[in-house]
Design a protein around this nucleic acid. Structure first.
Lengths: 259, 259
DNA sequence: CTGTTTATCTCGCGG
DNA sequence: CCGCGAGGTAAACAG
């Protein structure tokens, strides 16, 4: 038996079922008319209404209405659930410490209470993350540009760790910044800080002056800096495109979810 | 009747109940063994396991395991839910556009399916938020400091809107930044940008030089700037305290949940 | 234990 | 529609 369910139980019956479910470590789902109070980092009150309350064996509690992805009230995992009948009504209290928080659900009417025994299958694998994108670039650097050779990831700099660092076909240092979604000017600023930091580190003047360094860009005059910046992202905002142009950085359009 | 529920239904029966529930605009709760696939901003696959799936009439979809406050997979409100039986199995697909995202739940076994008719009670009042904190300061400005008079909220500046703007007992302009929890150096940086922006606006030199302005701080030499910065937060990190001191800003310890 | 960073963040507001 | 900031953010991770 993986589901125990009672419909329109008395508050006492609901309490018995709930205590049994706590004992078994079940996932509990309660649908009923209730008020909800929360006291802790903030405080809130929720008047009477029909809601779905989920109590998890790891201590998480969720109160959902018929709208929104977010629970209207909740308690994080690690909280402790207790149930009782006070003044003839089922009352569920979930508490945690650090910070001290209390969620109280007082039922006027329990429409349905279900205890769900959960078995296995908790393994998720997620693709399309920034981590995934970096792995793919290390495996096939040509998707950044032909001849690109990554040398380090998470290379430390005064502006923080750069996502990917390497050299291009001409041997010029390249800083690559990865973003998994459309970016605004802030990402360009981040890339600019890395490039600026690296130029300082290598003793290269911002204007592109090359003080005996690792290989100047070909033919160009002093305008071309000896460290390049490349932003890898599915797309950029107009403002970001302007700032990329200002800095002389390149944008590689690459969607992390594409193969 | 506010709850319709079937236990261990056939996949066809489950489909009928679900389609009826869609029609009625019910909140749907399904507990069963299923696999979950998500494609969109990222992509994920979830192997077979017992999970609680919630489908809301506003288009939100949630897939919960027995752990965590967060759903293991979800779809935001505004998505469209469809159900069908393919290869003898109940399959629920939730899609949305912009960004294009698809959540697919394929049930191997439906343990329980419930349709919940929700009525009323969506009014939450929350205290202890930043909004609430601002209201309290406007009602009783003395909790910032005696003699403080707020003049504007969300006052625009080149650095963005400041939380509260006003003048102190001496008539010196004061920028107040509100934070509802313990803050790090970033909040001080934010406040500093506001203060710097306002000084520029008023034609005051950063070093505190007063170019015919609204009332200099008493007695001090040129060190004291003619625009003050006050950070209201329950507490600050050590690093943040140093930066506050560097700028000559004040910290008012105020917990948004108090009072 | 605190502090930092990320997220399929969500959510609301303004241009 | 995009961009920005707040959240009882949650959650992973480093120190």
């Amino acid at each position: 038996m993986t589901v125990t369910s009672v419909h329109n139980p008395s508050h006492r019956e609901a309490l018995w079922e709930m205590e049994d479910a706590f004992e078994r470590g079940d996932l509990i789902s309660v649908f009923g008319r209730c008020t909800v109070d929360y006291e802790g980092r903030a405080s809130s009150e929720l008047g009477s209404g029909d809601r779905l309350v989920v109590l998890k064996p790891d201590g998480a509690a969720l109160v959902h209405t018929d709208e929104g992805r977010q629970p209207v009230n909740w308690q994080p995992p690690g909280s402790e659930h207790r149930a009782a009948v006070r003044e003839g009504r089922l009352r569920v209290v979930s508490t945690r410490t650090n910070p001290a928080e209390t969620l109280t659900v007082a039922f006027e009417d329990v429409h349905q209470l279900s205890a769900l025994t959960v078995t296995g299958g908790r393994d998720l694998d997620l693709h399309g993350s920034e981590e995934d994108l970096r792995t793919r670039i290390l495996e096939r650097p040509d998707i950044v540009e032909p001849g690109f050779e990554p040398t380090e990831t998470e290379r430390p700099s005064i502006a923080g760790p750069m996502d990917v660092f390497g050299v291009d076909a001409d041997g010029t240092p390249v800083v690559v910044e990865l973003k998994r979604r459309r970016v605004g000017p802030d990402a360009v600023g981040q890339l600019a800080r890395y490039v600026r930091g690296l130029r300082e580190e290598l003793g290269i003047n911002d204007s592109g002056f090359d003080g005996d360094s690792v290989g100047d860009a070909d033919g160009d005059d002093g305008e071309t800096p000896a460290v390049r910046g490349v932003l890898v992202a599915p797309s950029v905002t107009d403002r970001a495109a302007e700032r990329l142009a200002d800095h002389g950085f390149d944008h590689v359009a690459l969607d992390p979810t594409d193969e």
